[in-house]
């Protein structure tokens, strides 16, 4: 006991077991392992995981939906997306829905456990691929014919750091190059995800109000 409560959502039984075993061996408390999205959302409400490792491709609802539901729990579960193929749009959607990290399944065991540990800490787990997607998304938001006044923007520093992440530099290397502390780099990266997530939620609420979904 005493381990961090982790949940695994993956429709591939071999993978689910391998990931759960790795986590258990590393001292985590694997409270649930689900193969379907709806089931995962139901179970999560009961077992209250602190961290969820979620595959994007599930048989019923998508991993993006699961991520949204898990991030909406109180307290929210931190979501680390683990996906097999580079489903680009899906990864971006999951991040906007509140996932704080993304890793491809081919990552080594040590890399995976490190990513889970960072997710537990509340740090964002970026691959260069995800940094490229997030950069692209901010540029897209800014370039839309008439960018909304409340569209999130990156500061110059954030852009600089995201570009370095996308070029494969570690946080430590970035800190050295820009003469910043490791923590500061971490926070900047985190902010880029936080702003996207917030923007997404604001848009969902606005949509709900427009459609009259906010009143019973």
């Amino acid at each position: 006991m005493g381990g961090v409560r982790v949940m695994v959502v993956d429709d591939h039984p071999m993978w689910r077991d391998a990931v759960a075993r790795d986590l258990a061996e590393a001292g985590y408390d694997v409270v649930a392992a689900c193969g379907e999205g709806r089931q995962a959302v139901r179970v999560a409400a009961a077992v209250r995981p602190e961290v969820a490792v979620v595959d994007l491709r599930l048989p019923d609802i998508s991993g993006v939906e699961v991520t949204r539901a898990l991030a909406a729990l109180d307290p929210p579960a931190r979501v680390l997306v683990l996906s097999a193929s580079g489903e680009q749009e899906d990864v971006l959607e999951a991040v906007k829905a509140g996932a704080t990290g993304y890793l491809v399944k081919s990552a080594a065991r040590a890399e995976f456990l490190d990513a889970v540990a960072r997710t537990v800490q509340g740090d964002a787990v970026f691959t260069p691929g995800l940094a490229g997607l997030v950069l692209g998304e901010y540029r897209r938001l800014a370039a839309v014919p008439a960018p909304a006044p409340d569209a999130p923007r990156l500061t110059d520093r954030e852009t600089e750091i995201l570009r370095l992440v996308a070029k494969g530099l570690t946080y430590r290397q970035i800190a050295e190059r820009l003469v910043l502390s490791h923590r500061t780099v971490q926070n900047h990266v985190q902010n880029t995800l936080g702003k996207l997530h917030l923007h997404n939620r604001v848009q969902l609420v606005r949509y709900a109000i427009e459609k009259g979904l906010d009143t019973p």
Binding site: H12, M14, W15, A18, A84, S85, K105, S106, A108, R109
Partner: peptide, 16 residues
């Protein structure tokens, strides 16, 4: 493709 990728990734990870 997705399931083949999953298996390949698993083999790679465990094999290593």
């Amino acid at each position: 493709h997705d399931s083949v990728l999953q298996v390949l990734a698993l083999v790679r990870r465990r094999g290593g």
